[in-house]
Computed example of a mutant assay.
Amino acid sequence: MATMNVSLPDELKEFVEAQVEEHGYVSSSEFLRELIRREKDRTKLQGMLVEGMESGVGSELDAAYFDGLRDHIRNSGAA
């Protein structure tokens, strides 16, 4: 595992320490890794949303669409 040193103003350092204490993280490093993972997931989701918006007009999300989706799930054996 690589090491990275981060300088924080006292106010942010105190916030990190409080979050570690409050949420039961083992260390500030664990807390920061979790924040980075969340940001990575958020960035990926944002990219997927943009890709979807740029892909063109989608299906109309009406009752028939959801009925078909339910049928597909039932018939696939996933349910």
Score class of each variant (00 low, 15 high):
residue 39 E to V: 05
residue 15 F to N: 03
residue 29 S to D: 04
residue 68 G to F: 01
residue 37 R to G: 05
residue 27 S to N: 07
residue 26 V to A: 10
residue 66 F to V: 03
residue 8 L to M: 11
residue 51 E to F: 07
residue 42 R to L: 14
residue 44 K to P: 00
residue 7 S to E: 14
residue 55 S to H: 06
residue 69 L to C: 06
residue 55 S to Q: 04
residue 42 R to P: 00
residue 21 E to G: 05
residue 33 R to K: 13
residue 9 P to F: 01
residue 28 S to V: 13
residue 26 V to K: 13
residue 11 E to K: 10
residue 41 D to L: 14
residue 32 L to F: 14
residue 16 V to N: 04
residue 35 L to M: 14
residue 49 L to A: 08
residue 30 E to T: 13
residue 78 A to D: 00
residue 32 L to Q: 08
residue 54 E to Y: 09
residue 18 A to D: 06
residue 61 L to H: 11
residue 60 E to A: 10
residue 53 M to I: 07
residue 40 K to P: 12
residue 19 Q to W: 04
residue 72 H to F: 10
residue 15 F to G: 03
residue 44 K to D: 01
residue 58 G to R: 13
residue 27 S to P: 07
residue 24 G to D: 03
residue 69 L to P: 05
residue 49 L to E: 03
residue 13 K to N: 03
residue 13 K to E: 00
residue 59 S to F: 15
residue 18 A to V: 09
residue 41 D to A: 11
residue 54 E to K: 10
residue 44 K to M: 10
residue 72 H to S: 07
residue 43 T to L: 14
residue 12 L to T: 05
residue 63 A to E: 14
residue 38 R to L: 13
residue 31 F to L: 15
residue 17 E to Q: 10
residue 56 G to S: 14
residue 35 L to D: 04
residue 37 R to Q: 10
residue 32 L to E: 07
residue 36 I to M: 14
residue 76 S to N: 03
residue 14 E to T: 09
residue 30 E to H: 12
residue 78 A to W: 00
residue 13 K to C: 07
residue 66 F to K: 12
residue 28 S to A: 11
residue 10 D to K: 12
residue 61 L to V: 11
residue 21 E to M: 14
residue 25 Y to L: 07
residue 45 L to A: 00
residue 52 G to T: 03
residue 78 A to M: 00
residue 12 L to E: 08
residue 49 L to G: 13
residue 59 S to R: 15
residue 20 V to K: 05
residue 9 P to Q: 10
residue 38 R to I: 09
residue 65 Y to D: 02
